[in-house]
Design a protein around this nucleic acid. Sequence first.
DNA 1: TCAAATATTCAAAGCGCTTTGGATTTTACA
DNA 2: TGTAAAATCCAAAGCGCTTTGAATATTTGA
Lengths: 340, 340
Amino acid sequence: MNLKQLAQQLGLSQTTVSRALNGYPEVSERTRRRVQQAATEFAYMPSRHAQLLATGRSRTIGHVVPLLRHSMMTPYFSDFIAGAGEVYAEYGFDMLISVVPEAEEETHYRAMAASNKVDGLIVHAPKTDESRIGLLQALEIPFLVHGRAGNPADGYLWMDIDNKRSFERATEFLIDLGHRRIALLNGIEEMNFASRRRIGYVEALKNNNIEIDPSIMFCDDMIEPCGYSRTRQLLELDEKPTAILTSSVLLAMGVLRALTDCGLRAGSDVSIVTHDDQLSFLHKPGEIPFFTSTRSSINKAGRRCGELLISYIKSRESRPDSELWETELVVGSSSGPAPS
Amino acid sequence: MNLKQLAQQLGLSQTTVSRALNGYPEVSERTRRRVQQAATEFAYMPSRHAQLLATGRSRTIGHVVPLLRHSMMTPYFSDFIAGAGEVYAEYGFDMLISVVPEAEEETHYRAMAASNKVDGLIVHAPKTDESRIGLLQALEIPFLVHGRAGNPADGYLWMDIDNKRSFERATEFLIDLGHRRIALLNGIEEMNFASRRRIGYVEALKNNNIEIDPSIMFCDDMIEPCGYSRTRQLLELDEKPTAILTSSVLLAMGVLRALTDCGLRAGSDVSIVTHDDQLSFLHKPGEIPFFTSTRSSINKAGRRCGELLISYIKSRESRPDSELWETELVVGSSSGPAPS
DNA sequence: TCAAATATTCAAAGCGCTTTGGATTTTACA
DNA sequence: TGTAAAATCCAAAGCGCTTTGAATATTTGA
């Protein structure tokens, strides 16, 4: 059933039916009700494409996932998407995801803009030197960056957590517990969040006159096996770390496994502090967390990003303010005083 | 730049330009080249929506993610999506994801069909008694089920792994190692894959005259904390299991953590065998797996589902054959002979 | 050389919706 | 009661593409 048929059924014009359905004021309440009733009765659904052709807006938000990097972002991605998707559903937006080989990314963004498929885009996993931002600005398509590129991060909309402050605090927390040799298992340095975290970590060490030792600072994919192998490597050093700070619970789990393998206990022999995105599959609501962490829900971030972008799209002129979220320091049992 | 403008530029009709671009034979090679050149020069991109309105096909595949269940599927989802998305990109399809509260699922599927937004759908996480299948059949929209509903699974297209056989083998493997008391940490029984796995497990025990003990069989969300708490629970029993079979590496990680906490070693004190979806964030390519597992890549499953559904869509008449994949039994170091 | 066959191109209709500008009906007020 | 204002409703154009049916140009073969 299409508009024309529905209008015929009702003995009204398409105009009136369309207006009734879309809440325009130029239609009497009585007719509106009659139309709405008929619409549900005949299960009328406007063709999305016709609607979009006519209005020029697609009520769709795009997410471009670079293929090469996806293994890095995949576990975070799903929780983020779940959050954003919920918001989209509430506002009647659709979510378009494209998995694109990194080499074709630019072409793809251009095509996205030209083909009119989306009203806005969310940019994932920004690098410090991020070419996508300039491109999207040039294409004049509304977008939001989850994270930020290098400073200054203005001229575009973003939502980020305060990675630097967060890791500074985590490091200070360990220092306060008496740790002096703290290893850092970070994500790929190219990623903006990773470099910000490193800066926070380094700063805390500096402020406490602790030597910065690059041989206990690593950048890897944030997956369990990397946490494991780096920890094994760290435990072979002459000067073993007494604490390990990681950028992801997945890494932390690898660390834990390695410690266990070597007969060490987390929290007493070696402390672990991690950043925790509160991935849904690692948490049970209400459960007391094992890992001491700086935490911030990536699902909530997804929700907020969705909200911000939609509000931006709706009032093209006024871009909402970007947001910087603080993380929460949660003390679990994976950390403790430095062994003497 | 739209078709009309491009045609004007070239001094040709829209018809000819459209045909040249879409590879129709009624256009001379010389013109085609000229058109293509101009198209790239002016970065012409057909409006997707206009195209779809005109053709009635959307070159888009939908994934409906039920909100309540998403926490269950989220980690698997992202790897699946990544695989499917790659295939879609290769074939020029788009991927539409909707996160929908479970209560609105049916409405949403109907809307999907009526609004013409997608050419086909992928159904995730089928239950044993799955109402969505009948609904989609009635709506006459091509779809593919990742997994299966209850027997007989015909009349629709699906792709599944042989869950029953897989868990039968895993159980037999443990029995061959001398284990007699084998716990099962399974997913929610409602999910079809979980009940099939249970059946396989039970059958293997029966065939070896081992008592089935419901008090060591659990159905939970397949997340780390559940693996942990169930294992703690199991270790309090008088008759502790010597082996634990789990439906997910995430559960297995929880098991491992619990064993460690209790000073037990996996592989010697208690054996762990798990099903392994080869989630990208738990594996490093080339690495020797720690967990003994029945494994099958969910990313590859995503790829294959994408391929099957697209080929189905392209030739509406002939539905491709459904596929049942065997899993691979990979022996790691988390399993060993039963302690005597 | 000319008609028939073939190769190329085009004008126009249509996909299903929104929206403009105008027509018609109802209401309000003198 | 009559008229201006407000409330309803409608016909038709247009969004950018594909595709039908027809027109024109080029080849072919006798």
